[in-house]
């Protein structure tokens, strides 16, 4: 019988190959395109012109602003809606809370385009469609990304040690005080990972703004698409992608996503989401 021995390094090979082919090489190409221009013969030359062009164009900066605005408001409402739900689910005494959790999550697994199309009809019945493009877009985004907020919050709230709450209670803290000084800080990892999970895609998910905002709102994702398909300018398209990447990086940095804190190990599950 032949016995196979794989070292750890060898076990990593499939992932390394995948990563190189589909993540690293494309990223390098995007970087290459972002900081190059093209002469008449199609030869590339190094240039910062796309970069300057982006930051001196009113319409592009406006689109950046619109995307940030929509992402911010979407994240805020997702948090406001998801926190109580996650709290109730996680802290309720029921034994089978995961069944309840699934009740919240499973409908979200329906095809995304289908759900947005259905939502469009619903908004039409309410009378929002065509009149409140921004409101509709935010509703659609919140609807779409809510599970990404609920799950990490649920995870971190569920893992919270009950004895801490009891201790706060024993020591005389009222409910508001307990929430602000015990529950909220302990659920911070969940909040941060939820915020990152919602903020990022809502800057680029242009299917929602196109379908529910009747293409009246352009967000960065749509702009990238226009540069690649309509304007035939992959360089500017790549640069906008890089700018998005930088924004993601900054958000992660601010929200502490890179922190490797040992005593936050309980929140590791939350960060996975």
């Amino acid at each position: 019988m032949v016995r196979f021995h794989f070292s750890r390094k060898q076990l990593c090979i499939p992932y390394a190959v995948f990563l190189t082919l589909f993540v690293i090489i494309p990223m390098l190409l995007i970087l290459l395109y972002a900081f190059t221009g093209e002469d008449a013969e199609g030869n590339l030359f190094f240039s910062f012109s796309n970069f300057f062009n982006f930051f001196s164009s009113t319409s592009k900066l406006q689109t950046l602003g619109v995307s940030l605005t929509i992402a911010f408001i979407t994240t805020f409402f997702s948090l406001i809606i998801a926190y109580p739900v996650a709290y109730i689910l996680a802290r309720s005494g029921w034994k089978r809370t995961y069944v309840l959790l699934m009740l919240f999550i499973v409908p979200m697994w329906l095809n995304f385009v289908l759900r947005i199309t259905a939502l469009r009809e619903l908004l039409n019945i309410i009378g929002f469609l065509g009149n409140y493009d921004y409101v509709n877009t935010v509703i659609g985004m919140v609807y779409d990304f809510l599970p990404f907020m609920i799950l990490p919050l649920y995870n971190s709230l569920q893992k919270m040690d009950n004895s801490l709450l009891e201790a706060a209670n024993d020591l005389g803290a009222g409910p508001v005080h307990t929430f602000l000084h015990v529950t909220l800080p302990l659920s911070m990892p969940g909040i941060l990972s939820g915020v990152t999970m919602v903020f990022m895609p809502s800057m680029t998910n242009y299917v929602v703004s196109e379908t529910l905002g009747n293409s009246n709102i352009t967000i960065l994702g749509k702009m990238i698409e226009e540069y690649f398909s309509t304007y035939d300018d992959m360089h500017m398209g790549s640069l906008i992608s890089i700018i998005l990447l930088v924004i993601i990086f900054i958000t992660m940095l601010v929200s502490g996503g890179f922190k490797q804190n040992a005593d936050e190990s309980s929140a590791r599950g939350a960060n996975l989401w």
């Binding site: 602003g65 619109v66 352009t218």
Partner: peptide
């Protein structure tokens, strides 16, 4: 076109 399609921040 980019300018026309761009929306203002409400």
């Amino acid at each position: 076109w980019e300018d026309v399609k761009g929306a203002e921040i409400p």
